[in-house]
Design a protein around this nucleic acid. Structure first.
Lengths: 217, 217, 217, 217
DNA sequence: TATGAATGAGGCTTCATTCAT
DNA sequence: AATGAATGAAGCCTCATTCAT
């Protein structure tokens, strides 16, 4: 057991670091307990600063939640930028995009939970956020490029739409994380095991490619 | 003083009705606000009885939540029984099953929200429930029958697995409701409109059939 | 030092008494410290019940303040009803009314302070109160009767108006209490002493009668 | 983060001006919200400097309040010096003094509010102030001169006392401002309208003169 | 002289729950 | 079976003030 004592020496006078620290903890707590379930006291105690600072920097609980949500979206967007598909053929590119998205969601369950929670609130806090609006461009650009090329090369069905394909990929990737608990209980199968995850990933990739590609007999 | 009085006419002396009334209200409140977000006072005030009755019949808040969750699952299961596919061919049966599931989820957003909330809690309350275990049989029986026949008739790919197909159908149908709010905000498109819903339904059906059927060129 | 223990036996189940008790204490605290200066904890601790009951019966601090203000006005109004002037001549009646008002204000400094405080808030809480509106009738009825008779009997100047005369009486009676502290400090004279109070009362009565009566040479 | 930054141009390096600025703002805030109701943050944010300066120059909240109160008294006293009655007859002088006092109070509602607030605090802060003591001389000197001359010329009743007459004038002039809000609400009449104000002023002047002058039949 | 960052103490309020009848 | 009154614990938030530079 370590002595409970926060190192309040070198963190001071670094507002950026303090805010980041708070946001990181807050994200975890909100993801774990929901907006009303999370406790400001609990968040504060896990932080390197005092409770007062949560209010100093974020105003109130909802403000903190909103900022944590934004930060989560932003982190995920940054992660997505890491995927480069320049040289790949349309079908190979699509395969890799699906795999990446599936894995990326799987690797960020905290983000998934925040989005679930935000949807329980009907997107009320995302609605207020200016920051989020900028996500839509980058989120779908890669896919649009792939589709355009795939259709032009007569590989993809001509009615393939990037937005709807994105919806499909998201549905699989999101559901895979969001509904693990209840699915496991009802069907007595733990799909979060690595072997199951790779099986599901293949299923998703194959299924979607088969439905998009023209010659998939 | 804190809760308004209602004119309690002749509901008294009917415990069954009282409990049903409470559960119906509770389901709505939990679906709308989450477990910690829902308020016992609010639930009670929308009920035909007093707050004391919630505790009398359901013990505490978590007990009420669990019972409301169970009731929601039970209602949905009953609804699913309405689908009859006896005479249909495997491909037609699958199509109708997908459509039905999609529509059924869409028609029960309150249930979807409860399941989301339960997943946020890692299925902790479903885990305790004895009632829920009985759902898994009926939920997948129809699909297994279809798959068996589809494979036997050389219509479906031989490696088609009912459980995984069910997972796919569920992913689409669930995500369609669960993530409406955030999807709409990020992509500025309201997929809940009827025309969009029917477009998505066709997309889901076509995509899945194409990926399952052997000759789908 | 008495053992700090509230007799929580015979007060229970008497909501009226509980509310009265709370209001009495609250009036004192608000009068002594103002709206923001008063402390809910302090009010509660002087009460026979717990802090929770303040909120149970009055909603929040402002609700309690408003109700305490209303109760104070109501008490004062009831006190005013004790004055009966039926048999008196107009001049004698006016004299007695002025004396009574002067004394009544002097006897209720807590009420005066509440009114001062409410004026600091620009009457924002009185404005919301339905109860207060009923005061205006009774407050001035007696004076109107006196004026009418006084004018009819050629005793009072014909342009004497009850409302403005009331304003004058109130100004003296109110100021006598409200500004004691600063007046005493600046002029080094404690007008709250009984001899000074009676001198002031005579001054007010004489001055007003002289200015209203026709033959006051 | 909690307070907005202002473009501090070239106010720096002028302590006098900074203190004046702070006092002006503080007076307004205290007058509007009372001692406990006023917020140091709010005062600071309306100031040209930062919050730290309030503490630098005035020590703490109470120190700032006291200084603001003193400054308000001082301003008012300076204003009173503007009245010159040298050539006037006693009755004309008295009339003009009353009118002036009435108008002067009416023109300084912020000062009136501060005095109300100080009285709510039983003059506790004025009591500590050295500065205030010097006010009593000038405040009443003019009136004493008038009274002496009026009595000597057999115009005023011989028992006329400057201090009590001052009390009467103050009562009217103060109450006219201090109780506007509640009076308006209870009697549904807005006495702050200009026509009403001039009516009240005439009433006050006439009433007081009639009660002081010997031949006023 | 000046300031952004930081804070402990204490304020108001709400929660699920139980009591007494 | 049913209820209005009551509550302790804990929640969120704000206050005047100080620190480190």
């Amino acid at each position: 057991m370590e002595e409970k004592q926060k190192s309040r020496t070198k963190w001071k006078q670094d507002p950026q670091a303090v805010q980041h620290d708070i946001l990181r903890i807050a994200r975890g707590e909100f993801a774990a307990n929901g907006l009303s379930g999370a406790r400001m006291d609990e968040i504060a105690s896990k932080t390197k600063t005092s409770k007062r600072m949560l209010y100093y920097y974020f105003g109130d609980k909802e403000g903190l939640y909103r900022r944590a949500l934004e930060a989560a979206y932003d982190d995920v967007r940054k992660g997505e930028e890491a995927l480069h598909l320049e040289g790949a053929s349309p079908d190979e590119g699509l395969r890799r995009l699906i795999e990446f998205t599936f894995d990326h969601h799987s690797a960020n369950p905290e983000f998934i939970r925040l989005v679930m929670i935000e949807n329980v609130h009907n997107g009320a806090y995302l609605k207020e956020s200016e920051v989020i609006r900028s996500l839509n461009v980058s989120a779908i650009a890669k896919l649009e490029n792939i589709c355009k090329r795939g259709i032009a090369q007569n590989l993809f069905r001509p009615d393939t739409k990037a937005l709807y394909l994105h919806w499909q990929i998201s549905a699989y990737s999101f559901f895979n994380v969001s509904n693990r608990a209840t699915f496991a209980l009802i069907f007595s199968i733990d799909l979060s095991q690595m072997t199951e995850q790779s099986k599901l990933r293949d299923l998703v990739v194959d299924s979607l490619l088969r439905s998009v590609l023209i010659n998939n007999g």
